[in-house]
Amino acid sequence: MPGFGLTMGVTLLYLAVIVVIPLAAMLLKTTSLGLEDFWRIISSGRAQAAYWLTFSSAAVAALFNSVFGLLLAWVLVRYEFPGKRLIDALVDLPFALPTAVAGLALVTLFAPEGWYGQYLEPLGIKVSYAQLGIIVAMIFTSIPFVVRTIQPVLEDVPEDVEEAARTLGATRWQIFSRVIFPLILPAFTAGSVLCFARAIGEYGAVVFIAGNLPGLTEIVSLLIVIRLEELNYPATAALATVLLAVAFSALLVTNLIQAWQLRYADKSR
């Protein structure tokens, strides 16, 4: 097949200029730190609070979207109903809507006098400027991942398997939990991990609603920005390196799950 040289050349050159060299510049900055300083920065109390906040919020968001995504995917694949196409299209909204716009809309909805806030506030539920707000922003921006990874797999679940289970007297819940769910498990996991990874990296929507309170509502990305604005470059580089490592690991995990999914799909044939 022709084109190896050309495509290899273009791909490597572009990746080098746009991705690899800039990343290397940052890693270089980080390595100039020395291990001890690096560890001191990334393990500081404020950084730990930011990790905990970011990762736990992302985990809750991923959990919520796993359930919500499963519901959406199930309903969209299994049933015919009015408005189905509209909902199917709406699922993509969080990818298409700029995160700053999402953040602006969410903070206004959940402000104490906002459309939602006016009902939540009297109940003592604070969303804006609290961890709940961060979770809400993360949920909104990562909704499509689980839906869109499960949908095609759910569509391909062979009917005879379900049929067999039904003739053997399985209840609907049993069919779902013992037959269908195991089949979609790899896709479900991959979608949830993607969702988690995206939530960790989310910035635009979160900063509008989070509130910058160090140790309480300060996500890692925001801490990086603050360190940058404080002209504390070593800390900026060190914390950015941590996020890079997390992103890299998440990618690795999803790729492994996808490989598992492929083998899984082969076996189920």
Binding site: P112, Y129, G211
Partner: peptide
């Protein structure tokens, strides 16, 4: 007692005025 540390003065005003913190 500080509820929010915004990175700029105007953001702080917005926090106090728009978001009623």
């Amino acid at each position: 007692n500080v509820k929010v540390f915004d990175t700029g003065g105007r953001q702080a005003t917005t926090t106090f005025v728009e978001n009623k913190i």
